[in-house]
Protein backbone atom coordinates (compact mmCIF):
# COMPACT_ATOMS: atom_id res chain seq x y z
CA UNK A 1 0.00 0.00 0.00
CA UNK A 2 1.27 3.40 -0.98
CA UNK A 3 0.13 5.35 2.01
CA UNK A 4 2.08 5.39 5.22
CA UNK A 5 0.43 6.02 8.54
CA UNK A 6 1.95 9.09 10.10
CA UNK A 7 1.85 10.81 13.47
CA UNK A 8 -1.16 11.69 15.56
CA UNK A 9 -3.27 14.36 13.86
CA UNK A 10 -6.27 14.55 16.19
CA UNK A 11 -5.86 13.73 19.85
CA UNK A 12 -8.99 13.71 21.97
CA UNK A 13 -8.39 13.68 25.70
CA UNK A 14 -11.01 12.98 28.35
CA UNK A 15 -13.93 14.33 26.34
CA UNK A 16 -17.23 14.61 28.20
CA UNK A 17 -20.35 15.97 26.54
CA UNK A 18 -23.66 16.50 28.28
CA UNK A 19 -27.03 17.73 27.07
CA UNK A 20 -28.60 18.89 30.29
CA UNK A 21 -28.69 15.76 32.40
CA UNK A 22 -28.05 13.39 29.54
CA UNK A 23 -24.47 12.23 29.32
CA UNK A 24 -23.77 11.71 25.65
CA UNK A 25 -20.05 11.13 26.05
CA UNK A 26 -18.16 10.35 29.23
CA UNK A 27 -14.42 10.71 29.56
CA UNK A 28 -13.45 9.50 26.13
CA UNK A 29 -9.88 9.60 24.89
CA UNK A 30 -8.54 8.36 21.61
CA UNK A 31 -6.42 9.61 18.78
CA UNK A 32 -6.46 9.60 15.02
CA UNK A 33 -3.24 9.22 13.07
CA UNK A 34 -2.49 10.81 9.76
CA UNK A 35 -3.52 8.82 6.66
CA UNK A 36 -5.27 6.09 8.62
CA UNK A 37 -8.83 4.84 8.44
CA UNK A 38 -10.15 5.04 11.96
CA UNK A 39 -13.56 3.56 12.64
CA UNK A 40 -15.93 4.34 15.46
CA UNK A 41 -18.42 1.59 16.18
CA UNK A 42 -20.97 0.92 18.84
CA UNK A 43 -24.66 0.15 19.34
CA UNK A 44 -27.32 2.76 18.58
CA UNK A 45 -27.15 5.75 20.88
CA UNK A 46 -23.58 5.04 21.89
CA UNK A 47 -22.48 8.57 21.04
CA UNK A 48 -20.74 7.96 17.73
CA UNK A 49 -22.32 10.85 15.85
CA UNK A 50 -21.84 13.10 18.87
CA UNK A 51 -18.16 12.22 18.72
CA UNK A 52 -17.96 13.41 15.11
CA UNK A 53 -19.88 16.54 16.01
CA UNK A 54 -17.30 17.25 18.69
CA UNK A 55 -14.45 16.82 16.23
CA UNK A 56 -15.88 19.28 13.71
CA UNK A 57 -17.12 21.86 16.16
CA UNK A 58 -20.89 21.40 15.98
CA UNK A 59 -20.93 20.36 19.66
CA UNK A 60 -18.67 21.77 22.33
CA UNK A 61 -17.71 19.28 25.04
CA UNK A 62 -17.97 20.49 28.64
CA UNK A 63 -14.76 18.73 29.61
CA UNK A 64 -11.67 17.52 27.86
CA UNK A 65 -9.16 18.78 25.39
CA UNK A 66 -8.71 18.37 21.68
CA UNK A 67 -5.27 18.59 20.15
CA UNK A 68 -5.33 19.18 16.43
CA UNK A 69 -2.03 18.74 14.60
CA UNK A 70 -0.26 18.93 17.92
CA UNK A 71 -1.80 22.23 19.07
CA UNK A 72 -4.50 22.60 21.70
CA UNK A 73 -7.68 23.55 19.90
CA UNK A 74 -9.86 26.29 21.27
CA UNK A 75 -13.62 26.20 21.09
CA UNK A 76 -14.40 26.66 17.44
CA UNK A 77 -17.33 27.03 15.12
CA UNK A 78 -18.08 24.49 12.35
CA UNK A 79 -16.90 26.83 9.58
CA UNK A 80 -13.57 27.22 11.38
CA UNK A 81 -13.21 23.46 11.52
CA UNK A 82 -13.85 23.46 7.79
CA UNK A 83 -11.12 26.05 7.33
CA UNK A 84 -8.72 23.76 9.18
CA UNK A 85 -9.42 21.01 6.70
CA UNK A 86 -12.11 18.89 8.35
CA UNK A 87 -14.93 17.81 6.05
CA UNK A 88 -17.77 15.44 6.76
CA UNK A 89 -20.84 13.67 5.50
CA UNK A 90 -24.01 13.15 7.48
CA UNK A 91 -25.96 10.15 8.66
CA UNK A 92 -29.15 11.52 7.11
CA UNK A 93 -28.10 12.93 3.78
CA UNK A 94 -27.57 16.65 4.12
CA UNK A 95 -27.35 17.71 0.51
CA UNK A 96 -28.76 20.99 -0.76
CA UNK A 97 -31.88 19.58 -2.34
CA UNK A 98 -32.76 22.48 -4.58
CA UNK A 99 -29.39 22.56 -6.31
CA UNK A 100 -27.83 20.43 -9.01
CA UNK A 101 -25.13 17.86 -8.31
CA UNK A 102 -22.56 20.21 -9.80
CA UNK A 103 -23.61 23.16 -7.63
CA UNK A 104 -23.65 20.95 -4.55
CA UNK A 105 -20.10 19.85 -5.17
CA UNK A 106 -19.06 23.41 -6.02
CA UNK A 107 -20.21 24.49 -2.54
CA UNK A 108 -17.49 22.22 -1.21
CA UNK A 109 -14.94 24.61 -2.66
CA UNK A 110 -16.36 27.76 -1.15
CA UNK A 111 -13.51 28.24 1.30
CA UNK A 112 -11.00 28.29 -1.51
CA UNK A 113 -12.91 30.95 -3.45
CA UNK A 114 -11.75 34.45 -2.72
CA UNK A 115 -13.97 36.72 -4.84
CA UNK A 116 -16.64 38.79 -3.10
CA UNK A 117 -20.27 39.22 -4.06
CA UNK A 118 -19.65 42.39 -6.07
CA UNK A 119 -17.18 40.56 -8.28
CA UNK A 120 -19.68 37.72 -8.56
CA UNK A 121 -22.36 40.21 -9.60
CA UNK A 122 -20.21 41.43 -12.47
CA UNK A 123 -19.02 37.88 -13.31
CA UNK A 124 -16.09 39.31 -15.16
CA UNK A 125 -12.35 38.70 -15.01
CA UNK A 126 -11.29 37.29 -11.66
CA UNK A 127 -14.72 35.97 -10.68
CA UNK A 128 -15.21 34.09 -13.91
CA UNK A 129 -11.65 32.75 -13.90
CA UNK A 130 -12.06 31.55 -10.34
CA UNK A 131 -15.36 29.88 -11.13
CA UNK A 132 -13.80 27.98 -14.01
CA UNK A 133 -10.64 27.04 -12.09
CA UNK A 134 -12.75 25.50 -9.35
CA UNK A 135 -15.02 23.86 -11.87
CA UNK A 136 -11.98 22.00 -13.17
CA UNK A 137 -11.20 20.76 -9.64
CA UNK A 138 -14.81 19.73 -9.16
CA UNK A 139 -14.79 17.84 -12.43
CA UNK A 140 -11.81 15.85 -11.14
CA UNK A 141 -13.84 14.79 -8.13
CA UNK A 142 -16.82 14.01 -10.34
CA UNK A 143 -14.65 11.79 -12.47
CA UNK A 144 -13.07 10.15 -9.43
CA UNK A 145 -16.47 9.17 -8.05
CA UNK A 146 -17.89 8.27 -11.45
CA UNK A 147 -20.89 10.57 -11.40
CA UNK A 148 -20.32 12.38 -14.70
CA UNK A 149 -23.71 11.47 -16.10
CA UNK A 150 -25.69 13.15 -13.33
CA UNK A 151 -23.78 16.38 -12.90
CA UNK A 152 -26.63 18.61 -14.07
CA UNK A 153 -29.37 16.72 -12.22
CA UNK A 154 -31.03 18.28 -9.17
CA UNK A 155 -29.98 16.10 -6.24
CA UNK A 156 -33.55 15.66 -5.01
CA UNK A 157 -34.24 13.47 -8.04
CA UNK A 158 -31.38 11.05 -7.43
CA UNK A 159 -31.69 7.65 -5.78
CA UNK A 160 -30.38 7.25 -2.25
CA UNK A 161 -27.11 5.55 -3.10
CA UNK A 162 -26.11 8.24 -5.56
CA UNK A 163 -27.05 10.97 -3.12
CA UNK A 164 -24.62 9.45 -0.62
CA UNK A 165 -21.97 9.49 -3.29
CA UNK A 166 -22.66 13.14 -4.15
CA UNK A 167 -22.35 14.00 -0.49
CA UNK A 168 -18.96 12.31 -0.42
CA UNK A 169 -18.04 14.28 -3.55
CA UNK A 170 -19.01 17.54 -1.88
CA UNK A 171 -16.82 16.73 1.12
CA UNK A 172 -13.93 15.67 -1.13
CA UNK A 173 -14.14 18.85 -3.20
CA UNK A 174 -12.90 20.71 -0.15
CA UNK A 175 -9.64 18.72 -0.33
CA UNK A 176 -9.85 17.94 3.38
CA UNK A 177 -7.06 16.60 5.59
CA UNK A 178 -9.59 14.71 7.63
CA UNK A 179 -12.81 13.28 6.32
CA UNK A 180 -15.52 12.35 8.81
CA UNK A 181 -17.97 9.84 7.36
CA UNK A 182 -21.15 9.21 9.32
CA UNK A 183 -22.59 5.87 8.20
CA UNK A 184 -21.77 6.26 4.52
CA UNK A 185 -23.13 2.81 3.76
CA UNK A 186 -26.37 2.83 5.74
CA UNK A 187 -29.29 1.56 3.71
CA UNK A 188 -27.22 0.45 0.75
CA UNK A 189 -27.30 -2.87 -1.02
CA UNK A 190 -24.20 -5.05 -1.28
CA UNK A 191 -23.12 -3.66 -4.61
CA UNK A 192 -23.47 -0.05 -3.53
CA UNK A 193 -21.55 -0.89 -0.37
CA UNK A 194 -18.75 -2.38 -2.41
CA UNK A 195 -18.60 0.75 -4.54
CA UNK A 196 -18.56 2.97 -1.49
CA UNK A 197 -15.78 0.91 0.14
CA UNK A 198 -13.75 1.17 -3.02
CA UNK A 199 -14.20 4.95 -3.06
CA UNK A 200 -13.24 5.29 0.59
CA UNK A 201 -10.12 3.20 0.11
CA UNK A 202 -9.27 5.09 -3.07
CA UNK A 203 -9.64 8.45 -1.36
CA UNK A 204 -7.46 7.28 1.47
CA UNK A 205 -4.90 5.83 -0.90
CA UNK A 206 -4.91 8.44 -3.63
CA UNK A 207 -5.25 11.68 -1.66
CA UNK A 208 -3.81 10.37 1.61
CA UNK A 209 -6.88 11.69 3.41
CA UNK A 210 -7.29 10.66 7.03
CA UNK A 211 -10.70 9.08 7.46
CA UNK A 212 -12.84 8.74 10.54
CA UNK A 213 -15.65 6.36 9.81
CA UNK A 214 -18.82 5.44 11.63
CA UNK A 215 -20.33 2.26 10.29
CA UNK A 216 -22.61 -0.53 11.45
CA UNK A 217 -21.61 -3.12 8.90
CA UNK A 218 -18.97 -5.07 10.84
CA UNK A 219 -17.69 -6.82 7.73
CA UNK A 220 -16.87 -3.47 6.19
CA UNK A 221 -15.40 -2.02 9.36
CA UNK A 222 -13.12 -4.98 10.03
CA UNK A 223 -12.00 -5.08 6.41
CA UNK A 224 -11.06 -1.49 5.72
CA UNK A 225 -10.17 0.02 9.11
CA UNK A 226 -6.67 0.41 10.43
CA UNK A 227 -7.87 0.91 13.97
CA UNK A 228 -11.28 0.76 15.61
CA UNK A 229 -12.65 2.47 18.68
CA UNK A 230 -15.77 1.04 20.32
CA UNK A 231 -18.27 3.17 22.23
CA UNK A 232 -21.18 2.04 24.36
CA UNK A 233 -23.46 4.32 26.34
CA UNK A 234 -21.07 7.21 25.81
CA UNK A 235 -18.08 5.32 27.20
CA UNK A 236 -15.14 3.86 25.39
CA UNK A 237 -15.05 0.10 25.81
CA UNK A 238 -12.47 -0.90 23.26
CA UNK A 239 -9.77 0.51 21.06
CA UNK A 240 -7.23 -1.09 18.75
CA UNK A 241 -6.75 -2.97 15.54
CA UNK A 242 -9.75 -4.83 14.15
CA UNK A 243 -8.52 -8.25 15.31
CA UNK A 244 -7.93 -6.99 18.81
CA UNK A 245 -11.35 -5.35 19.05
CA UNK A 246 -13.11 -8.39 17.67
CA UNK A 247 -11.83 -10.51 20.53
CA UNK A 248 -12.32 -7.91 23.26
CA UNK A 249 -14.77 -9.44 25.79
CA UNK A 250 -16.25 -6.01 26.62
CA UNK A 251 -17.09 -5.44 22.98
CA UNK A 252 -18.60 -8.87 22.57
CA UNK A 253 -20.69 -8.20 25.64
CA UNK A 254 -21.96 -4.88 24.29
CA UNK A 255 -22.90 -6.36 20.96
CA UNK A 256 -24.13 -9.81 21.87
CA UNK A 257 -24.98 -9.50 25.55
CA UNK A 258 -23.68 -11.98 28.13
CA UNK A 259 -25.08 -15.17 29.46
CA UNK A 260 -26.25 -14.95 33.01
Amino acid sequence: MARKIGGVIVDLQNISLRFGGVKALTDISFDVKEHEIRSIIGPNGAGKSSMLNVINGVYHPQEGQIFFKGALRKKLEPHEAAEQGIARTFQNIALFKGMTVLDNIMTGRNLKMKCNFLQHALYWGAAQKEEIAHRIKVEEVIEFLEIQSIRKTPVGRLPYGLQKRVELARALAAEPHILLLDEPMAGMNVEEKQDMCRFILDVNDHYGTTIVLIEHDMGVVMDISDRVVVLDYGKKIGDGEPEEVKNNPEVIKAYLGTSH
Binding site: P78, A81, A82, E83, A87, A94, F96, G98, T107, N110
Partner: peptide
Protein backbone atom coordinates in the same frame (compact mmCIF):
# COMPACT_ATOMS: atom_id res chain seq x y z
CA UNK B 1 -24.65 28.87 -3.80
CA UNK B 2 -24.08 30.11 -0.27
CA UNK B 3 -27.63 31.48 -0.15
CA UNK B 4 -29.15 28.30 -1.50
CA UNK B 5 -27.05 26.15 0.80
CA UNK B 6 -28.32 28.09 3.82
CA UNK B 7 -31.85 27.79 2.48
CA UNK B 8 -31.70 24.05 1.89
CA UNK B 9 -29.75 22.82 4.92
CA UNK B 10 -28.17 25.35 7.20
CA UNK B 11 -26.19 22.94 9.40
CA UNK B 12 -24.54 21.34 6.39
CA UNK B 13 -23.83 24.79 4.95
CA UNK B 14 -22.03 25.70 8.14
CA UNK B 15 -20.06 22.48 8.29
CA UNK B 16 -18.91 23.00 4.73
CA UNK B 17 -17.54 26.41 5.64
Amino acid sequence: RAWMAVRDMDVAAQVIG
